[in-house]
Amino acid sequence: MSQVLVGSTLSALSTGVGALLILFLQGTITHKWRDILLAFTAGIMMAASLLSLIPESLAAGGILPLLIGIFLGVLTLTIMEKYIPHIDLEHSRKGIEIDEKAMLIVAAITLHNIPEGLSVGVSYAVEQSETGNLIAFAIGLQNAPEGFLVALFLMNQKIKKFNAFIIATLTGAIEIVTGILGYYLTSFVNFLVPYGLAFAAGAMLFIIYKELIPESHGDGNERNATFSFIIGILFMIILIESL
């Protein structure tokens, strides 16, 4: 139990490690670098979806859970985009304003972390004790740029850096809960994992094409963003192959 708690916590907190970078940004970043970073993160998320989440879903459950999970992921994000209202968090006199686009990013990453946490918990429940450590490490590496992405979006919504860091870190905290759940309910979770992995992939693909790519091309930096997107894909491929 102690191993799954430590592994889940470390993989979850890596989201905060990525978000920590925004605390060192001087003011706001330029449109050019913002587009480059968004495209790079989109490349990482694309590779993670197509080369990790989708193959794992296929291996665990076959084509039907994959199709159902992706469809539900896309449908959920579509509904959220349509009906999530503007949210005003009254943490100060002026409040913290988060628009629908930022909320979609936060929700997508949080939803994406649910099956990841389950995967960590399930991996610690198998006989090979090192499997859990490997999965937790791999997911932790993937969570870092996601944390930076969430924090960056929140910062661009005029939220204070520290508040953006805290919110981004909390998006990964759900992995601690789902990791413990996955450990104790292995037999039940094993049935749901392929659907959850595909659901996360669908949600991520929606965000990549609907939000990140258009955002990275909105200020005349299409070529730089394209190169960054490809580099992000290659970076994630190297990580996947190395692990």
Rank of each mutant, 00 (worst) to 15 (best):
V74L: 12
S49F: 09
N190D: 09
F227I: 12
G43I: 01
I166P: 05
M80G: 14
A173R: 00
I207D: 05
E127C: 13
T78S: 14
I180D: 12
P115T: 07
H31I: 00
Y124C: 14
F227N: 11
F40K: 11
A225I: 03
H31R: 15
F148A: 14
L50E: 08
F235K: 09
K161I: 01
P214G: 12
V177W: 03
I84A: 15
D99V: 13
G220P: 02
S52M: 05
E127P: 09
G27S: 14
V106C: 13
Q142I: 04
I44F: 04
V193S: 07
T171H: 11
G117Q: 02
A151G: 06
I174F: 07
G7P: 04
T28C: 08
M1N: 12
S52W: 01
L67Y: 00
L141E: 13
V126F: 08
L154D: 01
R223C: 00
I44Y: 02
E215P: 03
S8F: 03
S242P: 00
I230H: 08
W33K: 13
V193E: 02
P65R: 00
I213G: 15
I166N: 07
L134I: 06
K32G: 12
I208V: 14
S129M: 11
I207A: 15
G95T: 09
I84Y: 09
F235E: 06
T9C: 11
I70D: 05
A42G: 06
S216W: 10
I176T: 13
L64P: 01
E222K: 00
L152R: 02
V193N: 02
G73W: 05
L66Y: 00
Y195P: 09
I87M: 14
H86Q: 10
G73N: 08
E222S: 06
L181Q: 02
L197W: 03
I230S: 15
T226S: 14
M204Q: 10
E146R: 07
P214C: 14
F153R: 08
I231N: 07
Y209S: 10
I105E: 00
I238A: 15
I230W: 03
I109F: 09
S187G: 13
L134H: 08
I233H: 12
A42W: 00
K101A: 11
F227T: 08
A42P: 00
E222L: 01
I135G: 12
